[in-house]
Design a binder for these strands. Structure first.
Lengths: 133, 133
DNA sequence: TTTTTTTCCTATCTCTTTAGTAGGTTTATA
DNA sequence: TATAAACCTACTAAAGAGATAGGAAAAAAA
């Protein structure tokens, strides 16, 4: 299983925030309840999104979260890469470095590289706006 | 990481067997050495391929393995599904059953389903023959 | 100024998977 | 009968998945 709950939940949260955009700051407690997810688990995922400027977090009473940009500005690929770590479906294509010394002669590597590209392209072609409504 | 060493090694072994086709039965010891893989680990993977008629195993001296069919007859997808278990990149699309009760209203599920289909189609479109030479 | 409500931070835990190692049994050839 | 191979089964160490838990900091309301 390549995409874990971290990335999937992050995505569901962000779509939820997108759909509740008019309501100002949305407390995560409400999102967790609507989505049937563990609040404590989500609290662990969200600071990453805040730090990278994807959502804005507001402390205290009347606080919560809201999207920092227009839903159409978010690529699903970016959100997944942020929450899951690099989207690397195969060990061979570990980001950047050619980790395998057999790379030159390997019969299967080109296939993995193409797959890696395909996966990232797929998710980069979808925005939060596409997932809404 | 979605595709583990089991499936990747199985594939490399089968391509190796395909390229050594003229040599009769090829002992796994030789394949392991050429590919730089643990013999003991491969010995654990190969019986599955034999049981499903992908390769033929021959006991004893002068024994070894060889492909049961023409390289063009093997789809990479089939080999991976056999050695890895179902190719399910996302928990939501667990084979057959709609495991999630939120399926109806889920904003992200269609994307995961489409992704699941894409992954399987990709690997089903490649044969062992495509990987050779 | 105190209470409440929220984000945020960090530690811990259980279960499963991954990637092997290890040792022995069976089978066929020389 | 010796040898070389497939085959079978158990074990293990490390990592990752999917949380739970407890509390600190901050901001608004009372």
């Amino acid at each position: 299983m390549m995409i874990s709950t971290r990335g999937r939940y992050a995505l569901r949260v962000m779509v939820d925030l997108a759909e509740m955009a008019t309501t100002g700051y949305v407390p995560m407690r409400a999102v967790a309840e609507r989505q049937g997810l563990s609040l404590k688990y989500l609290e662990q995922i969200l600071p990453v999104l805040v730090k990278n400027g994807y959502v804005t977090g507001m402390h205290g009473k009347k606080g919560g979260y809201r999207l920092a940009k227009d839903p159409a500005e978010y690529r699903v690929g970016d959100i997944l890469r942020l929450t899951e770590g690099e989207l690397t479906p195969v060990g061979c294509t570990e980001c950047g470095k050619g980790s395998c010394e057999r790379a030159e002669s390997c019969r299967t590597l080109p296939m993995w590289n193409e797959f890696h590209r395909m996966v990232n392209d797929y998710f980069d072609g979808i925005t939060l706006a596409d997932l809404m409504q």
